[in-house]
């Protein structure tokens, strides 16, 4: 899984927001705010990480159980897919 080209996540006053630039702005015209864990998943998706890798990384980074981590990744990925942001 990979974030499409043209989507960038940047910080404003401690908040991470995603905007679509260039051709990507034709598919997605808006803005997404990311919390800490969403930013963490986003960064991995930008590198093209698979779900299992992301879940493992979340388990190492945050105090969560596997089930919760999987559910979080699935929910976030579904959201990004819904917005047509994933390749």
């Amino acid at each position: 899984m990979k974030i499409k080209k043209g989507f960038v996540a940047k910080e404003i006053a401690g908040q991470y927001v995603v905007v679509a630039l260039g051709a990507a702005s034709k598919i997605f015209n808006g803005i997404i705010k990311l919390n800490d864990s969403a930013k963490f998943i986003w960064d991995m998706l930008s590198e093209g990480a698979e779900k299992t890798e992301i879940v493992d990384a979340l388990l190492a980074e945050y105090d969560v159980d596997k089930e919760t981590a999987e559910r979080d990744v699935d929910a976030f990925v579904a959201q990004l897919e819904g917005a047509n942001i994933l390749e």
Binding site: K10, I12, V19, L21, G22, S25, I31
Partner: peptide, 12 residues
């Protein structure tokens, strides 16, 4: 809405 990275990097 910024359309390019240069604008993002100035506006944000």
């Amino acid at each position: 809405t910024p359309q390019d990275l240069e604008t993002v990097d100035s506006l944000f």
